[in-house]
């Protein structure tokens, strides 16, 4: 089975809230001292792929659309024992919209060639839009199953388990197929062996430019036009404290009730 796992590199979401800043001008988070890490659901996807390969055999190609820094995500994927790594270099907008990304990934996947399964994380820890997987399936013209946490090889096709609000659904699907992966207790990403980390540093990474995969590079570099970020802000938690006054207890209770009505109506 040929599996392609798409990985997104994001700003470490575990940066302490107090250290989190945004650039209102650029409408993005300020990197500060935070590191770039692989999005956790993408790592869950890779882990699920690795486990599936252990059962069915096949090849796993890790695919990243990012600036040069994306190499780190691919090195880690190789250390976790992905077979191949492809980096599509993003030399344009730092946060292209999901449609633009899906467009790029689809083009890269067509360039890579045959595939049975494309696995992506269900959403990313930075913007959390959660649409790339579905849009990618659309671009590739293959079905998509979302919120998947397990895949097995069935007699005719894959048995795919997806999480729902009420439990799990099992579906049987033919390939090719796109799945978006969510986490469960079994797809916690493995810690690569140091030996494999050392080896991964010497493995080749295929680099592709936007022009090489045959997309409209100009519109991708501009970030796409699927949606527009109008404004971003960090939610502010406001606490105000007010004392209700009054001579007697009854008076204070009255005042208190009155203020509650005023405040709730104001909201």
């Amino acid at each position: 089975m040929n599996i392609i796992v798409c990985l997104k590199q994001i700003l470490d979401p575990e940066v302490p809230a107090r250290d989190f800043r945004i650039d209102a001008e650029k409408k993005e988070a300020v990197r500060g001292t935070a590191n770039l890490v692989t999005n956790i659901f993408c790592e869950n996807a890779l882990e699920t792929a690795l486990q599936l390969r252990e059962k069915t055999g096949g090849r796993i190609t890790a695919l990243v659309f990012a600036p040069e820094s994306g190499e780190d995500a691919l090195r880690k994927a190789l250390a976790m024992k992905a077979d191949e790594a492809v980096l599509v270099i993003n030399d344009g907008h730092p946060h292209p919209d999901p449609l633009a990304v899906a467009h790029v990934l689809a083009a890269a996947i067509s360039k890579i060639g045959v595939f049975d399964l494309v696995m992506v994380g269900r959403e990313s820890g930075d913007w959390g839009v959660g649409q790339t997987g579905g849009l990618l399936a659309e671009e590739l013209g293959v079905p998509c199953i979302s919120f998947v946490d397990n895949l097995e090889n069935g007699t005719d096709g894959l048995i795919v388990t997806r999480q729902t609000d009420n439990g799990w659904e099992k579906a049987r699907s033919t390939t090719p197929l796109v799945v978006t992966i969510t986490n469960n207790e079994y797809n916690v990403p493995r810690i690569p062996k140091t030996r494999d980390i050392m080896m991964s540093a010497r493995q080749p990474i295929t680099r592709l430019t936007l022009d090489e995969i045959g997309v409209d590079a100009a519109s991708i570099r501009a970030g796409g036009n699927y949606y527009e970020i109008v404004d971003i802000s960090i939610p502010v938690k406001e606490v105000t404290c007010e004392f209700v006054t009054g001579d007697s207890l009854d008076e204070r209770v009255d005042q208190f009730a009155k203020r509650i009505i005023e405040v709730t109506q104001a909201l």
Partner: peptide, 21 residues
Amino acid sequence: VMEESDFPETMQEAITSLESR
């Protein structure tokens, strides 16, 4: 740790955090 990657999960978390943070 380095050849088997087989060690307690909470220590793995510490290592992961050291790596990225």
